[in-house]
């Protein structure tokens, strides 16, 4: 299990930020070649990010590169250049099934040419169009490389012709749809970034809302958002304690030859045991136990 609570966006053409990306504590860093880079600097950022991956240390952070949309002249060039230095994953904006299949094919060729393990470069479709949202399930299925999905609410609400609000009522359906499809196919569901850096209270509410719907992590646009995201997504003390008790009781029941048992007067069966195991695993990865 890879802990992917936070994914921090870093602008791809900023050397100072790139060289600090690995020490900020995010589970993943997204080196951005798309929105954070001016049209006239696309070539420059691509080369800088390639060199950064080749030479810098990112410590425990997973390295993800957001390429330009494949419908632009930059998209496939980004994939071809960046894949050669083997990032952990490539994020594909405004993803469609066709895009994911196209990138998968190029990655297969590059992995073979460079002698990388086949399928080792993962994919992250960015769901930020009405089409993408309605087809998120088949987009994930388009390649075995897909390891998670990022919901991009700014572009999505723009595509839907609706207003994006801080409370986020308008993206309830999108969050539910992405979370459900991701859970069904066993990949991570990463929530859209929260853009008001000064409203901490609303930020916490927003993360909790996403978590309650089934999202597994959240994108960040500023390093100071990371700790808050980790706090909310980490299993709470009560959850850990309950999970430990479930597993202890399970061992006891096994010894007694029981399939189903009760704890605190409530029946415990397979889904609860599985959840307890996941909670413990997450807590261990987060260094909480």
């Amino acid at each position: 299990m890879k802990l992917r609570r936070s994914m921090l966006f870093m602008p791809g053409n900023n050397p100072g930020m790139l060289q600090n990306a690995g020490i900020l504590g995010a589970d993943s860093v997204i080196l951005d070649l798309e929105d954070a880079v001016a049209l006239t600097e696309k070539d420059s950022a691509r080369i800088l990010v390639r060199n950064a991956i080749k030479t810098l240390r990112f410590y425990n952070s997973e390295i993800v590169v957001r390429v330009n949309p494949l419908s632009t002249e930059f998209g496939y060039e980004d994939v071809k250049e960046i894949a050669q230095v083997k990032p952990d994953a490539i994020m594909v904006p405004k993803a469609t099934e066709e895009d994911i299949e196209g990138v998968d094919k190029i990655l297969c060729e590059i992995e073979e040419k460079m002698g990388f393990e086949k399928g080792s470069i993962k994919l992250f479709p960015l769901i930020e169009t009405a089409y993408g949202l309605e087809n998120v399930y088949t987009i994930i299925e388009a390649s075995k490389r897909v390891t998670g999905v990022l919901l991009g609410a700014e572009d999505l609400t723009n595509d839907l012709g609706i207003k994006r609000t801080k409370k986020g009522k308008e993206i309830f359906y999108a969050r539910s749809k992405v979370a459900t499809s991701c859970r069904a196919l066993g990949v991570d569901a990463i929530d859209t970034p929260f853009t008001d850096l000064d409203d901490r209270e609303a930020f916490i509410k927003d993360i909790k809302k996403a978590k309650s719907i089934g999202m597994t992590g959240k994108a960040a646009i500023n390093p100071r958002q990371i700790d808050t995201i980790h706090d909310v997504f980490a299993p709470s003390e009560e959850e850990i304690e309950y999970a430990q008790r479930v597993l202890e009781k399970m061992e006891e029941a096994k010894r007694d030859g029981l399939g189903v048992f009760s704890l605190d007067g409530k029946m415990v069966d397979a889904p609860i045991i599985n959840r307890a195991k996941t909670t413990i695993e997450k807590a261990k990865l987060a260094g909480l136990i």
């Binding site: 070539d43 080369i47 800088l48 950064a52 030479t55």
Partner: peptide
Amino acid sequence: ALDYTVSARVETAVKR
């Protein structure tokens, strides 16, 4: 600039 940046900027300038 660190080495990786120097080399990236030179390569970009040459390609341009």
